[in-house]
Amino acid sequence: MTVFISKIYAGLLSDIEIPSQLARHLRRADDFIRLGVAAAHNVLGDEMLQTSEEKCSCGIFLSTFTGPMNTNIDVLKEIVHLNPLSPTLFSHSVANSAVGYMANIFNIQGCTMSCTEFEFPFFRALEQGMCTIESGLVSSCLVLQVETYSNLLKDVRQKQYPESDEWQPGVACWFLTNNETTAQFSIDSLTIENTDTNDCNYLSCEEHVTLNQEKWSHQDPLKTARLLSENLSKNKKSPMVCVSRAAHSTVRLEISPSCSWQL
């Protein structure tokens, strides 16, 4: 079965705008949740998931490098200082907090999963999203990578790797579907090959990305997914081959423009 991409969004935390109709839902949310919800709104809009069948057959696969680490640290702070812990703060520190908010706000009642992964988180989520559509468990799903990193990691990296790229909190989000009529692209193949190493330093790991003929090198765990998403959004008429190599693994993704989109 072919899996299609019908919507794509990528953004940085600094650029995210929360639509007014979502502000009430997110008044107590942390940045990790806000990124996930804002990205989902960008790809789903206000009109999606009208029928009961749509709601139950739509899923979410969110993968993340560090999860809501700033909120984890806030919880740790309360515990080490023996302060009363806010139930809201604790519930937002759980790794699937963003997925829970997204499912609640957009009434998504199908398969929802959060995953934590240090090696190409977005592509691991994409692999699971494709697999579950092919299996028939869902007919569509949001695939996201959400990163807020944390002030702690930012501080550590500035001290240990002052020359390296700054990690930029943000999100990449695709809406996958088995329905070609709304598709912009079809996913032709995805392979992820692991390297047999125990020595990868994830704080400074370099990724070498090739998108067709263009090349980048960077150290930001979200950047490959953002670059790919932005390139696909700009150029909907050409096939795309994305190869990203790091010390830990190599990803190869081949995407074609959808026939229906070109008509």
Binding site: S91, A103, N104, F106, Q109, G110, C111, L137
Partner: peptide, 18 residues
């Protein structure tokens, strides 16, 4: 295997276990 969401509340289960 079956998985489904309440789409109800961040921590509490749906009262009817939807």
């Amino acid at each position: 295997y079956g998985i489904a969401g309440d789409a109800f509340h961040p921590t509490a289960p749906h009262p009817q276990g939807r």
